[in-house]
Design a binder for these strands. Structure first.
Lengths: 249, 249
DNA sequence: AAGCATTTGTTCGTATGTATG
DNA sequence: CCATACATACGAACAAATGCT
């Protein structure tokens, strides 16, 4: 009968600390050197424990930076109605938007087609970042038909959220008409904004939202950080909300 | 009045060749050197033409490899019912599956939970590649509850498609209960199977399919090549049952 | 912008205990 | 008892990425 190895007991100790909130998701664990001192073992033995935890996606290491507790991925249900702020609050995080651009300019061919406009019509471009609980989740790029939605720009500046801004200019509700999803590599600028490395996988969503009367009100592109977001589609999308599974054995 | 530049005429010539099928999606264009000889121009002029086409996403260049015609992304509608073979045929490509693994083994904790089994129950594992028109589109990994579906293994070996195999063992229809989507980087083995580079973005889908009586019949993971597939979700999916697509025999 | 300290990642080598045959 | 294989643990040095000044 073999005794259980030291590194396993280190794993259970550390995971216990995480479970009882001593180290929160996103937090940096002590360095390997510190751990090896704390447990009185060689650095390799501490590494072995961390490697095991990394294998099971409990933590992840960044060379030169440290070992971090994996953040539970942000669950983003997409159905007919998708509201970022609602989703964020539902998972207990503070939603936030950071505006990168808010301007009016003539639309290009793709945008014209999606919004059923003639090419060159003025559109409001709203580009920015969506944050949840302080960390950047997605990079969005939305285009609105300016003539159909007078005052939207001021409404967005005032309210921050798209849902409220649209309501303020007379669109009480909007639904997702069509969505196209692909995976893409992060460009250098996106990597900078989302604090990830260039080339890391992004989940790209291209969608058109319609108003209650069926006219398109938004053409939007969103790039979600692949390691931070899971889009969920439920068959009973209207129905019940699943409780998030946060169990860590 | 300036004459139209030479490179533009090269662009129209090449795009004509592509349009009339002389170069198919995914094909490698002649090298810059060959093009410059063929058109009797300097290599930089040919480069200018290729750069313009790359800008408009008609082709893409891979250093050291060549310039390739961009593959038209494979449109993959996901709704309640998702049938790969149907989707492939609808876009005019021959569907094909390549089996990497077909075996029975005890299930792990995740699989047990998804399929409502007790941990360690025997499950049928079906892993392979989905090809459309000869090119690999996705890497799939499916798990079926063996005890509930006796004879499924032979049915899969015989029929090739999951839909037909399930029908053969008494599951006339199945619907997608829940789907979770993320973007991930391709592992070295996946990159090999999908003929892409390691780390390239994949669209990962995790889903559970239910039989008509509501019991789970399949827990499946699929990794779609990001540059070759677009998942589409249309708003009009919830309502009526879609008639089977008979547009292409 | 360049340099420096910090931190993880990798690769040598060494030693020990345990199961196998 | 010996040979072998394997996992565990420790030590030292260097490489590479990161963050800070």
């Amino acid at each position: 009968m073999t005794r259980s190895p030291i590194w396993k007991s280190i794993v259970t100790e550390l995971e216990g600390d995480i479970a009882r909130g001593h180290y929160a998701p996103g937090d940096k664990l002590p360095t390997e050197a510190e751990l090896s001192r704390r447990f009185g073992v060689n650095r390799h033995t501490a590494r072995r424990a961390l490697a095991d935890m990394a294998e099971r996606d409990v933590v992840h290491a960044r060379r030169g930076a440290g070992v971090f507790v994996k953040a539970a991925p942000f669950d983003y249900p997409i159905g007919e109605r998708v509201r970022f702020s609602q989703n964020a609050r539902a998972s207990g995080r503070t939603p936030e938007k950071r505006t990168l651009r808010l301007e009016t300019r003539p639309c290009d061919a793709t945008e014209a087609k999606a919004l059923a406009l003639s090419e060159g019509s003025p559109v409001l471009v709203y580009e920015g970042l969506s944050l949840a609980g302080g960390t950047a989740i997605a990079h969005f790029f939305s285009v609105f038909p300016e003539p159909r939605l007078p005052g939207l720009r001021q409404a967005i500046e005032a309210h921050g959220t798209v849902t409220e801004a649209l309501r303020a200019v007379g669109v009480p509700d909007y639904t997702r008409a069509q969505t196209r999803l692909t995976a893409e590599a992060a460009t250098p600028v996106q990597a900078l904004h989302l604090t990830m490395r260039e080339g890391q996988p992004l989940l790209r969503s291209e969608s058109v939202n319609h108003g209650p009367d069926g006219t398109p009100v938004e053409y939007g592109l969103t790039w979600f950080a692949g390691d931070r977001v899971t889009l969920t589609i439920s068959a009973t999308e209207a129905g019940g909300r699943h409780a998030p599974d946060t169990s860590t054995p």
